[in-house]
């Protein structure tokens, strides 16, 4: 098995794991973590594409690699904005649940 295919499979697994966390976790910070897993899985797919495009003396195609760097920056900015909203929501309403039906229920120990 060549390294780039292996990395592609890891990327696919990460997307799946993150997707599961995104659906299964009620806590918004955990959802955010799961979203970051999906994001890094997608970036790995870009990385595989870049590695496979090795040519002309380069060990990789620089264009998709540059896109990943841009993407990582944007993903971080998104996480930070979401964190700010979650914290403010906790201050303002005391309930950080995203599920409209869930308000008022106690947490199940998921949160630290």
């Amino acid at each position: 098995m060549n390294p780039s295919l292996l990395a592609g499979l890891v990327g696919a697994a990460l997307v799946g794991l993150g997707l599961y966390g995104l659906i299964a976790h009620p806590h918004p910070l955990r959802k955010l973590l799961a979203f970051n897993l999906v994001g890094s899985g997608v970036f790995l797919v870009f990385g595989v594409v870049a590695r496979r495009g090795a040519a002309a003396g380069y060990a990789f195609d620089p264009v998709p690699q540059a896109m990943v760097i841009t993407g990582i920056v944007v993903a971080f900015a998104a996480s930070a904005l979401a964190v700010a909203l979650i914290l403010r929501l906790a201050v303002a309403g005391g309930d950080v649940s995203l599920d409209p039906q869930a308000s008022g229920r106690r947490d199940d120990g998921e949160a630290e």
Partner: peptide, 9 residues
């Protein structure tokens, strides 16, 4: 805030 957070996600 809740609407904005859901929109963002």
């Amino acid at each position: 805030l809740a609407a904005a957070l859901r929109y963002l996600l």
